[in-house]
Amino acid sequence: MRLAMVTAPGQTAVVEVPTPSVGPRDILLKMRACGICGSDNMYIAIGGLPGLEGRTPLGHEPAGEVVEVGSEVSGIELGDHVVVNPMVAPSGIIGSGGTTGALADFLLIEDAVVGTSVAIVPKHIPFAVAALNEPMAVARHAVNRTEPKVGDLVVVFGAGPIGLGATIGYKSLGAASVVVVDIIPSRLEKALAVGADAVINSAEEDVVARLIEIHGAGPSRRGKAKPATDIFLDAAGAPSVVETALGAAKHGAKLGIVAVHKKPLPVDFGDLLGSEVTILLSMGYPTEIFEVTQDIIANWEKYALIVSDTFAFDDVDEALRVAATPGAADKVMVTFDN
């Protein structure tokens, strides 16, 4: 079978490897769709992960069809459509340092257990939408970390895939208003399409003033007007986001950070002390990998809008190039022929 992997710093190749053999507790998936993550680009840039330099398999956002079932596996049948928890693979994280990757014709799921390693999705859900399951679990964990209550007023900075997934998540959990902030008009249009109540173009508008217009005014502090926003979520990773959010936060507000910040940020905790802001960091998906599956099933048409570009596996090199080019695409999916 074919497998895409990192072969050197800045280089990838599709190589021929043996199709995995299925043990009694395993299943074999025919890959149908796999998303490309920003971390894939990082692995490529550095030449692969430690211990797998020059031979790091790629792909950890899979959706596939079951084509072989081990004799001891229960609850999974041939032809089932499934999404995968890449973190629990016995041979290492799928596509992120383990020995297998989902940018391949087939993917072996060892010790396959429904609800632990895989979840079954209805067959009317497009595979390219189902393959959003892993990154949307990241978004849902970020939402959960901020512990939203029904009726909360929320602002999400960044209308990329994680920000859009978080927007859907907050609305699903009962937020009264979700405002999305970005600088790219097409992303803001997509935010409205997935359910945002309002959007702000921070390149053209005063974010704090607009939030006060949309969410109303909260208690002022030291003579500064504050919006009534309850939760700020940074899904953008720009230094100005944290500065804006902390400067705008009313007493007791929450700031969640799911974006990756590549440089240290200065924070004046003396200035923040009286606001008693809660700062919550979010990484991965300790429990959310299949929690979010049900929301994708219920709202798949909204989630489908997150996919911006689709490439056939024959064009995986181009898919990786586009995904790595700033501003070229939002969520890139690789699909596989029947």
Rank of each mutant, 00 (worst) to 15 (best):
Ala304Met: 02
Ser186Cys: 02
Ala238His: 15
Leu3Asn: 09
Thr287Met: 12
Ser172Thr: 08
Cys34Met: 03
Gly115Val: 14
Thr229Leu: 13
Thr19Lys: 14
Gly252Leu: 00
Ala203Arg: 13
Leu153Val: 09
Gly48Cys: 05
Ala225Val: 11
Ala45Ser: 13
Ile44Arg: 14
Val207Phe: 07
Ile231Phe: 01
Asp295Lys: 01
Ala45Gly: 02
Leu255Trp: 00
Asp268Arg: 06
Arg321Leu: 13
Glu291Val: 13
Pro18Val: 06
Asp105Lys: 09
Ile168Lys: 06
Ala324Arg: 10
Ile125His: 09
Cys37Ala: 10
Leu28Gly: 06
Glu243Ser: 13
Ile200Trp: 07
Asp111Tyr: 04
Ile183Thr: 15
Ala13His: 05
Glu16His: 05
Ile168Ser: 05
Asp26Pro: 10
Ser74Asn: 13
Pro266Ala: 05
Asp182Tyr: 06
Val156Cys: 06
Thr293Cys: 04
Ile212Ser: 13
Pro126Ser: 03
Ala198Thr: 05
Leu265Gly: 09
Ile36Leu: 10
Arg32Cys: 12
Ala253Met: 08
Val14Met: 12
His141Glu: 10
Asp80Ala: 12
Pro126Asp: 00
Ala323Lys: 08
Val316Arg: 00
Pro90Trp: 03
Val178Arg: 07
Asp337Gly: 06
Ala324Glu: 06
Pro9Tyr: 07
Ala131His: 00
Val332Ile: 01
